[in-house]
Simulated scan of single mutants.
Amino acid sequence: MVEENRPAFAAERRERILELVRANGTMSLRDIAVKVHASEVTVRRDVRALEAEGLVDRRRGGVALPGRVGHEQSYAGRSGRCAAEKAAIAASAARLVRPGDAVTIGPGTTTEALARELASRTDITVVTNSLRVAEALAGASGVEVVVTGGTVYGPARALVGAAAEQSLKGLRVTRAFLSGNGVSAERGLSTPNPAVAGVDAALAACAEETVVLADHTKVGADTMVATVPPEGIAHLVTDSSADPEVLMTLEETGALVHVAVVARERGQ
């Protein structure tokens, strides 16, 4: 079917997949493909997008509910997902920050982990719209923290809106560190919320280059609103469980891919 890959139908197809998984608990990709009249490749891409939003969990050859109620996963719930991978990604990304740097950091559980890594640094400036990032750096004597204005968006623990975007205009920093909910070679970095997307784009616009922090559940996922185009991603920091084919396509767009090694993989 030609229509199965058209963006206009993607949201409807993903909603149908979510309905099927909610009704059955677990399903194979093959069964889902039959039900939604799409290829397994298309369904796999849809499942990645749904997993990036915390709506389903991928299993070997299939998909399952993550064991929660409600449409949008809580911030605390996202914090517990892939915690070891996020810690490794944060440690790797922190090596891209040097004394004297000014950086922007967007909202997210992985960027919050990055902020904790930077708390012991000296002579850096962090501009952020993330309440959790600001809190993690509040006691860091060597870090100057600049928080944007804006309206609080609770699920992301972030400041959003025109005031947040306006406060970033005219700034220039070395790097922007963003997380989002999906990253692909086709659309770059994306997020399901337009308000969050607007500030993510503004944080990136301030920077000489953008660094995306994305665990394997987000690599290859494509959510509703694109924030940074593929060619605008200078670095992608992920973990070793990310799909190598997707990483290769991202490298072809110009991103330098850093694969962080999780502590358990080092035998620690």
Rank of each mutant, 00 (worst) to 15 (best):
V97K: 05
V97Y: 07
V97A: 05
R98Q: 15
R98L: 14
R98A: 12
R98W: 13
P99V: 03
P99R: 13
P99W: 07
G100Q: 06
G100N: 06
G100R: 12
G100C: 07
G100S: 08
D101E: 03
D101F: 15
D101V: 06
D101P: 03
D101N: 13
A102F: 13
A102R: 15
A102Y: 09
A102E: 11
A102Q: 08
V103T: 11
V103A: 14
V103C: 07
V103N: 13
T104G: 07
T104M: 12
I105L: 08
I105E: 03
I105V: 15
I105H: 05
I105Q: 04
I105P: 04
I105G: 05
G106Y: 01
G106L: 04
G106V: 06
P107W: 11
P107E: 14
P107D: 15
P107M: 07
G108V: 05
G108E: 03
T109R: 12
T109I: 06
T109A: 14
T110P: 06
T110A: 12
T110D: 01
T110V: 10
T110Q: 00
T111D: 04
T111P: 04
E112M: 05
E112W: 04
E112I: 03
E112A: 10
E112N: 00
A113L: 03
A113P: 08
A113H: 11
A113V: 10
A113R: 12
A113T: 04
L114K: 08
A115K: 02
A115C: 02
A115T: 03
A115S: 01
R116P: 00
R116S: 05
R116Y: 13
R116Q: 09
E117W: 08
E117C: 11
E117T: 08
E117D: 02
L118E: 02
L118V: 00
L118A: 02
L118N: 10
L118G: 00
L118C: 00
L118W: 00
A119I: 03
A119M: 10
S120F: 09
S120R: 12
S120M: 07
S120D: 15
R121T: 07
R121E: 08
T122L: 08
T122E: 12
T122G: 04
T122I: 08
I124L: 15
I124M: 12
I124A: 14
I124N: 04
I124T: 13
I124D: 11
T125E: 15
T125S: 15
T125N: 01
V126M: 04
V126S: 03
V126Q: 09
V127K: 02
V127A: 14
T128C: 07
T128F: 05
T128V: 10
T128I: 10
T128S: 11
N129C: 10
N129M: 15
N129H: 15
N129W: 02
N129Y: 07
S130P: 05
S130F: 03
S130C: 10
S130G: 13
S130N: 11
S130R: 04
S130T: 09
L131I: 07
L131Q: 09
L131G: 03
L131R: 06
L131T: 09
L131N: 00
L131E: 11
R132F: 04
R132Q: 14
R132S: 01
R132I: 04
V133W: 11
V133C: 00
V133K: 00
A134C: 09
A134L: 06
A134G: 15
E135I: 10
E135V: 08
E135D: 13
E135W: 12
A136Y: 02
A136H: 13
A136K: 00
A136F: 02
A136C: 05
